[in-house]
Nucleic acid binder design. Structure first.
Lengths: 243, 243
DNA sequence: GGAGGCGGTTGATCTGCGTCAAGGCACGCA
DNA sequence: TGCGTGCCTTGACGCAGATCAACCGCCTCC
């Protein structure tokens, strides 16, 4: 691996995208073109097709990428958690609706200067390539979920992804017991999984009944045995799922 | 757009990946590390997880990227047509099974020197980033197909993608009447669409019965009206589908 | 020439999930 | 205090697509 994963917690903000080596000079250049933006829960960050004149890192909160057909059917195609990157260097328009699911803070970089920075400091382009490959892997993993898994497996897969991401962000190894809060409504989960919200609700109840998860309230989830959850998800191993 | 799409037909081979500007010096460097490999129909190019010491452009023929669960359920996550790029610079292992669907010729580059070339000639990394973003778009478009479309819409979507790609390769504008050969078996189509081969067969028959397509034999397809096909696919417009 | 395999089609039946509908809990607001 | 609204759950029912099975045409290889 040429560009190793790297914990950027020492940086002013955790730009997985650009801090591959936390180069002081680059950070300085970035400082000049960065600004913060806040969004309220439910607010749309950009509409698909709109001009998007920035790229950004999610600092806190959760946002989603969704596509919608004319008749209203919608499919979530990405979940943006803190440290994730949004935006398409070299492209003018947004390809998807970006919606804040909770209150969200993003660290934005004006696109033009960011693109110039990419040209002068090649390892940023290389780092972005690595991140885009990660996203591509995640999207393809999700194609398997959407195309071939049952409703129960889909729910278990989603819970596993969120649990793992959550654990990783908090520097816990995802193993054995895990506790986290669901950042999505049943409807949003349904949009991610290609299901209806009723089916999501039923399958969550079923997983609860079968002891795979314990629910406190509607959002607080306890996973007594992460391995069991992975089995329910139909995953052969611990590896690889959504970044 | 910083790195415009570019017809590389003047190059020795059509490397969309690297010939962004057909730079003579770069091509010369590439010459040194390139070699051709042929695969027979049905042959597996690499297994998921295997070490992959090259990256490549598809010169001719069709290959697929697939994922398989332990119980045998498989999902195709990518279709490789001539000029498409395979491989993951900066990664050691293959993430998916790559299988030749027809006889395939690939132009390969040894990975180490290719990665070095990426570091010294930044626009190759940038070009690859653009291509990866394209693939990501295609994967996400496909998530909508898998998650939210009916069997009939799925089939129409696949036919539309293949027809468009085929037309583009032959420098025809995809509009009105189109003619092409299906490069996939019914089973492969089913694996792409998250369906069974029986359903694929039935829906193709239905589209034929309804005059959306005309079939000569089992593989030769005539689309009398491309716009009609797009309507059947549930697409609001002509844009964007799989690269 | 016939046996067997591969790819494809079509029919009959089953079932997982969608659809429609009712109702529950928590919260804010008049 | 009562009424709305958002989010969620559960039940009854129907249907799209899976499953199981039979069969066809074509090719290859004895």
């Amino acid at each position: 691996m040429i560009f190793p994963q790297h914990d950027c917690s020492g940086c002013p903000i955790r730009h997985r995208a650009v801090c591959a080596r936390c180069d002081a000079h680059e950070l300085e250049l970035l400082e000049e073109i960065k600004y913060y933006r806040s969004f309220e829960a439910g607010q749309t960050v950009v509409w698909s097709g709109d001009r998007m004149d920035f790229v950004a890192s999610v600092v806190s909160g959760i946002a989603t990428l969704t596509q919608t057909m004319e008749d209203g059917r919608t499919q979530m195609v990405g979940l943006l958690l803190p440290s994730d990157f949004v935006g398409r260097p070299g492209r003018d328009g947004a390809a998807y609706d970006v919606v804040a699911t909770s209150d969200v803070v993003m660290c934005c970089f004006r696109k033009k200067p960011f693109e110039q920075l990419m040209e002068t400091t090649p390892h940023i382009a290389q780092r972005l390539l690595q991140m885009t490959l990660d996203e591509l892997d995640a999207a393809r993993e999700w194609m398997l979920v959407l195309g071939r898994k049952t409703a129960r497996e889909k729910i278990a897969s989603l819970l596993a992804i969120i649990a793992r991401r959550d654990a990783t962000l908090n520097l816990i190894t995802p193993k054995g017991k895990l506790v986290f809060d669901l950042p999505l409504t049943r409807e949003a989960m349904a949009d991610y999984l290609g299901l209806t919200l009723e089916t999501v609700s039923r399958q969550i109840s079923a997983l609860k009944r079968d002891g795979v998860i314990v629910l406190e309230g509607k959002r607080h989830v306890i996973v007594p045995d992460f391995t069991r959850l992975l089995e329910e998800a139909g995953d052969d191993n611990d590896g690889g799922l959504l970044v």
